[in-house]
Design a protein around this nucleic acid. Structure first.
Lengths: 336, 336
DNA sequence: TTGAAAGCGCTAACAT
DNA sequence: ATGTTAGCGCTTTCAA
């Protein structure tokens, strides 16, 4: 039934009585070709079941339409939103996103970056501003734009679209302090892995110090990503170890929700007995009871701005190399 | 500083004093080459900042290491789990997943399939068993394995790894009926879009009919995917339109959780006044209070089995063409 | 508007 | 264990 070898442009050319070059032109929009010829070619292509071969096109033209992207985890609504914004902006222009997951590990990120660069993407987007020395070198040597996101890197490799995680948490600490809370704790992950998470923890410590408050109420919830369950377990430990705690800030809304459920199971009133803050403005924080005070990091906007930056760069339009996003504090019932 | 044109194998060959073919061999594992030669080549490559060009390799060898995958949405933990299982199984063998989002739309799926096939993937995995006629034709003509997932297609194109959404919901209806509930409602999305969601709705109707019960308590929660918020709104309408309802099955745990929060805001006891069931065994269903009765569709296992199926096919190992997954009913406090 | 020639960077196939 | 030759399917470049 079906031929073993797929038809090529040469086959279409033969069938239509034109040269392969004309067939090639028929598939490119905006190329000089008569309407009749193009129609005949497209018809022949459909009849033959022709599928354009990007592989060959990419090699000959020495460019692909790939944009490489690394994110810590596929299963995270924040990063999914960023990729969604990026994808929407870029796929309108025919770019295809090549996605890789680092699993919150810079070693894995290094492997991934190397693998992705072999595909000759037109740009590479990474999450975070901390990398292994070799990963950094690979990115520096890449002859395509590099965009770091979700962070304000100490030494940007190229461009970045992000925000200071520490500053964002500071704004939440300020809110809690202004609301009268003094004994404030932090629930976060193992410091060595998720750099954005550790930045939040450091921001928490600095902000408390700034207010002259004790910053030793730190609960380590495990290896990132911190799940709802781990948030719940951490809350149990917090209540045991620091029973007089008045408020707790969690590294994400997911762990914050887990912590909230632990209070519900124990009959601990939130915010009456303890107030809770999250991070990331996940959907759950807006709908759970009580709704969670959180930081909207504008995940989708990060993706959109990154996408637009890439288009500007590829179109040789003047660009702003560094885009700083302003996270917004959202105060909800869990802290008032 | 950096040369404008990237170094190729020919450059390494020149620098090392071997032929380009030997350089090629140095990068392939398990090829006949002396350790000294390989070491020298890899060293030269590192010095030159060489990056392997998959583009050229793919064209010459007429094979890529892409596996194309379409999922309805990037922002869904169930599909993320499937992709995670797939990714883990396949990336161990050096495959790279090419991911596309259909946004729950078969027209978009058609465009996506065409775009993905141009990349010459070694296999294509699609979510669902319903496609446009043209998408079906594209898949049938693709000279690579096609695997439909998350469904048991009426007419499979090639292979499938999935389960019957209707049967899964039936098992939940049976549980509710056995537990004594009679006036049971369904909250789901617009029937025309999410085919798995409509299958669940149809399964609900058939199962109630089977028990001789009224199956007219159907709340349309909007266009898929149904958010937590839409679940909450749907619960509000359910309580208004069918105030004597004793139990409700929601198209997913997310909408079920939204529905639960609406009850919490109104002081409606769950399950005392109304029982709730979800679908998908999302993390939230296991930790919220009360925890949600749900169906575990084994999302991750779907991905893993699909990955192993692909490896079997590509290695010419004998395979089982159709894999049926058994969803498991999980009974929790929301229905007892 | 169309065609002819050449070649992108790698590797299959064959040779030594 | 290494080398030589040719060519994958397109598109750049130049010509008509």
């Amino acid at each position: 039934m079906r031929n073993d070898k797929a038809p090529t442009m040469a086959d279409i050319a033969r069938k239509t009585g034109v040269s392969p070059m004309t067939v090639s032109r028929a598939f490119k929009s905006g190329s000089l070709i008569s309407k009749d010829t193009r129609d005949a070619i497209l018809k022949a292509a459909e009849e033959l079941g022709y599928v354009f071969d990007s592989t060959a096109s990419n090699l000959r033209s020495q460019k692909t339409d790939f944009i490489a992207v690394t994110i810590p985890s596929i299963n995270n609504a924040n990063f999914a939103d960023t990729v969604g914004g990026l994808s929407e902006t870029l796929s309108a222009r025919g770019f295809q996103i090549l996605l890789g997951y680092t699993n919150y590990d810079v070693e894995e990120e290094e492997r991934l970056i190397e693998q992705l660069l072999r595909r000759k993407p037109q740009a590479i987007v990474v999450t975070g501003g901390k990398h292994t020395p070799r990963a950094r070198r690979l990115l520096e040597n890449a002859s395509v734009p590099v965009i770091e996101t979700w962070d304000v890197p100490a030494e940007p490799i190229g461009h970045f679209v992000g925000f200071s995680n520490a500053d964002a948490v500071r704004s939440m600490v300020d809110h809690f302090v202004a609301a009268g809370y003094r004994r404030i704790a932090f629930i976060g992950g193992d410091a060595s892995r998720d750099t954005r998470g550790s930045d939040r923890r450091l921001g928490f410590i600095a902000a408390l110090a700034n207010h002259g408050l004790d910053a030793s109420r730190l609960i380590d919830a495990g290896v990132p990503p911190i799940s709802m369950r781990e948030g719940a377990n951490a809350m149990a430990r917090l209540l045991a170890e620091f029973p007089d705690t008045e408020a707790v800030i969690c590294v994400s809304d997911l762990s914050a929700f887990g912590a909230l459920t632990e209070c519900q199971r124990r009959g601990v009133p939130v915010p009456g007995r303890i107030a809770i803050g999250g991070f990331g403005d996940y959907e759950i924080g807006g709908i759970c009871v009580p709704a969670l005070t959180t930081i909207d990091a504008q995940a989708r906007q990060i993706g959109e701005r990154t996408g637009r930056l890439i288009l500007d760069l590829l179109d040789d339009r003047p660009d702003v190399p560094h885009v700083t996003i302003e996270p917004r504090l959202i105060v909800r019932d869990s802290s008032r």
